[in-house]
Design a protein around this nucleic acid. Structure first.
Lengths: 110, 110
DNA sequence: TGACAGTATGTCGGAACTGACATATATTGA
DNA sequence: TCAATATATGTCAGTTCCGACATACTGTCA
């Protein structure tokens, strides 16, 4: 996974879904980025459903507001690992996790 | 996620499913470990289905044999992030990924 | 408009992860 | 049994990631 390419990709104005056509993004890379975005969305949804601010959530998870923002945005500086650990800490089960991941695939197909 | 606890947990002879009852493992931690194990299994299945050795796969993924072994074992030194990137590189889709993750939940429930 | 709450972006020191290598332990076939 | 092949375990230097902090942007309410 090329970091430079990816940062370029995620710079303001580019949605991941679009970019793979332009840049020489492998299917695996594309899937990875989309997955990360979807996990970010899942995280935001769960947080908002609980009426928490990013700062609130940060405190709960023992993290910081800025990192929550980056997680939700699918920033290159956050790993899927962290996103998943956060979702699990929020009480998501593996089954729910699977739904989040599959959901992105479904959307893409549509 | 406490590293020491986890290493102890995963030392030879302990299956993750068992351990949460003994050690003070939070649900999130338990789910995380089980998820990692399941991804390891998924990786191994896919590799064997293609009749590849760990060394073969390592070369394909630009990694090393030892890391493949650790990925498959769910070793504490490998992140879920790496496991997922590897599965995607092997051609798995997000949908398939979701199935792997959900599968572990189903087994656990049974 | 200005103050305020919430979110986004950039950077940094320290912690965790990674590939590589050495080495140990299975597993297989003759 | 002994090689040969495959897998597991331990370690390390270089890279990436993390929480934290500072700061900038974006509403929104008066």
């Amino acid at each position: 996974m090329n970091k430079t390419k990816r940062k370029r990709l995620e710079r303001r104005g580019w949605k991941v879904g679009d970019a793979s056509e332009f840049l020489g993004l492998s299917p695996a890379e594309t899937q990875y980025l989309e997955l990360k975005m979807e996990l970010g969305r899942g995280l935001r949804d769960r947080r908002q459903a609980r009426d928490l601010t990013q700062a609130d959530l940060a405190q709960r998870l023992g993290s910081s507001q800025s990192r929550i923002a980056k997680m939700e945005a699918g920033d290159p500086s956050v790993s899927i690992d962290l996103q998943i650990r956060s979702l699990l800490s929020l009480g998501a089960t593996r089954r729910e996790l699977a739904r989040v991941i599959a959901a992105s695939a479904r959307l893409k197909a549509a």
